[in-house]
Design a protein around this nucleic acid. Sequence first.
DNA 1: TCTACTGTAGACCAATCAGTCTACCGGAGG
DNA 2: CCTCCGGTAGACTGATTGGTCTACAGTAGA
Lengths: 190, 190
Amino acid sequence: MAVMESKAGPRERLVRAAIALVQEKGVEGTGLTELLARGDVARRSLYQHFPGGKDELIAASTRQVGEVTAVVIRELVGQVDAATLFELMLATIRQGVVDSDFRYSCPIAAAAYAPADSDRVRDAAGAAFADWRGAIADVLVEEGRPADAARGLAGFMVATVEGALVVARATRSTEPLDQAAVYLAELLRA
Amino acid sequence: MAVMESKAGPRERLVRAAIALVQEKGVEGTGLTELLARGDVARRSLYQHFPGGKDELIAASTRQVGEVTAVVIRELVGQVDAATLFELMLATIRQGVVDSDFRYSCPIAAAAYAPADSDRVRDAAGAAFADWRGAIADVLVEEGRPADAARGLAGFMVATVEGALVVARATRSTEPLDQAAVYLAELLRA
DNA sequence: TCTACTGTAGACCAATCAGTCTACCGGAGG
DNA sequence: CCTCCGGTAGACTGATTGGTCTACAGTAGA
């Protein structure tokens, strides 16, 4: 047993390295050599924890992003309204994008754009999006919206964030993120 | 001179093959061997038309997508209102997505997710998004909206489409596209 | 103490990558 | 006529890819 704290084990180091690299370079752009160096993990250890190799690691990392995001949002249930939540999400993302000089993007979206032959990764991205949307929907329900409307609106919020992020990355401008905040606020007010 | 019709030259065949493959497999996932086979073009011909190699071809293809999209939209100026335009765009995309069994995505977005070291491709994606937004803004201005508002709203429309498309691809569902249509219509009505 | 397991270190593999090369074909312009 | 030149065909290179391999260190339980 032991540990559990202070130093993260090889598995967790691999996942963290994978998330960071996929965010920056995409799935195909992330090489195992670089990934292992960044996580300071032996090549063999990868296949001990993820027998399926790179695909399994990326899929697990993507799913973890979705789960963690959902947990963070659910902690806000009952404490914030939809507009505040959206502001919060966009502010966090904007900071990350600017700090990285527009090199970072959403690791889930990057996974969604993985080549078509690795269904495992794409499905993980789908699951992560679903987690994320579910957590937002909980906040909306708590706010008093009917379950159906909450689900639909939560989905639209996720899509809006993702879209603004892609365009922001491509045009190297935070304008799409700021616009998303404005128009979404208008929609949430209605 | 001659030609101009019937058979597309090697350059155009390359561009078309690049667009199709990037749409399906992303930039890194698209190999030259497959690309050349699909376009039925000799390896040497690629470097005759695109001395910069793969990057230059992908960048040119991405830019072309933006330009063609803008031309198509501009033909609608004065003929449709914003809501109709958005419906049209989403319907086209939905069809492509469904027909390809959720394997196709937006080639511009795929280019935006290219690894960070190829600025050329990312910049082309930015230019393509700008073209697209500009054309939409023209429609909105013609509709009577002030230039500023038109620009902002057009940007939001582009981002919304892109976001819905990523989530749709990942979750293999057209629901995000349908939701986008609903909420955007609400916003445009205001 | 012996065994078993996790982890590290790094050599090694076939396959594939983007890109360069030579050789040949056919039509257009001098 | 003959010479260019865009195009085709395909061999080839060095680098890198993901994945497998052997060898060994440390630690925990029997």
